[in-house]
Design a protein around this nucleic acid. Structure first.
Length: 293
DNA sequence: GGCTTAAGGAGCCCATTTGA
DNA sequence: TCAAATGGGCTCCTTAAGCC
């Protein structure tokens, strides 16, 4: 559905690659503030991945905010929800909804034992949400899904594969691996690690060294390295490298992009090494992507 | 302008050790 | 027991030259 020009610009796409998977790809900018009111009829699980813009959700008197670069795994019993959108703010999000039966099927291991149960998670609450920053690999998957949803020739098979892979990443990160994380990280440590992540993404072109970064966030190098890997599933510079290439992938598709400009802007002073790294991740040269775009 | 290749250095990663 | 330090190996990145 394309938005009417009086309402704004952009679109909302609904896809159903199979019966138990509902996908909404949202990419728009509104001319006026607008609130969407929803009433869910049945218990469900929804993964919402916020790519751009902020979104507030009000459910049963509680309010949550979704930030760009984060995903929210929501468990909902039938409830009323409100989602206010702010005018002139670009907003991009991918949401995947599945029924409880499908969630339970996905959570079964090879022996038929269920690792996580919907009813144990939500208890008597009307709504429960888990939020965290998604990893670069999932960010890349999201990018591919957004592109595929906009292409009329993309196959259901391709979309379904990416949806299941994204769900697998999210369930593993949010529900399964969470319990195995060492408890040595306090709330303050987690907050400092999040600050470290923000710093390296903000200073992508000239990142601080590990020792500088540890001083900046007030955490020793040991905790920075072990804690970062534990929290984000990657080393500090491994995470930075993935983020650099993802940013480059997006920038290369913009009008008048050049390989040299993009490589420098994401922190590669040498376009040749940038091209090699890009090829290693996406299987094509950056110049090829420019021509395709 | 974009890409390939090779050499070499910086510094990151991680297993191991140290010490409080 | 666990945070912190250490050191070797290795990856990442730069530089330079040359080709398309």
């Amino acid at each position: 559905m394309n938005l009417h020009s009086w309402m704004g610009e952009g679109s909302v796409q609904r896809l159903a690659p199979r019966q138990d998977l509902g996908v909404a790809a949202v990419d728009f900018r509104l001319n006026d503030d607008y609130t969407v009111a929803l009433h869910t009829q049945v218990p469900m699980v929804e993964l919402s991945c916020c790519v751009q813009g902020y979104r507030r959700v009000e459910v049963s008197g509680r309010e949550f905010e979704m930030k760009p670069g984060s995903w929210s795994l929501q468990f909902a019993n039938p409830a009323e929800a409100r989602m206010p959108f702010t005018k002139h703010q670009p907003f991009q999000m991918m949401s995947i909804a599945i029924p409880v039966t499908a969630f339970h099927h996905f959570m079964e291991n090879a022996e038929g034992t269920r690792a996580v149960d919907f009813h144990q998670i939500i208890g008597t609450l009307p709504y429960r949400v888990f939020q965290e920053a998604y990893d670069p690999a999932s960010g890349h998957l999201l990018q591919q899904m957004m592109e595929a949803s906009a292409r009329p020739d993309s196959l259901s098979l391709e979309m379904e594969c990416r949806i299941l892979e994204l769900l697998s990443h999210a369930f593993r990160s949010i529900l399964l691996d969470r319990e195995q994380r060492p408890s040595g990280l306090s709330r303050t440590d987690l907050s400092k690690l999040e600050r470290a992540r923000e710093i390296i993404l903000d200073k992508m072109s000239h990142p601080p060294s590990l020792s500088e970064l540890s001083r900046l966030i007030g955490l020793n190098e040991f905790k920075l390295k072990t804690g970062f890997k534990d929290r984000y599933g990657s080393t500090v510079f491994g995470y930075l490298r993935e983020a650099r290439l993802e940013t480059a992938y997006r920038l290369l598709q913009e009008p008048h992009a050049s390989v040299i400009d993009v490589s420098v802007s994401v922190g590669y002073s040498n376009p040749s090494y940038f091209a090699e790294a890009f090829r290693g991740k996406y299987g094509m040269n950056p110049g090829t992507l420019i021509r395709k775009a």
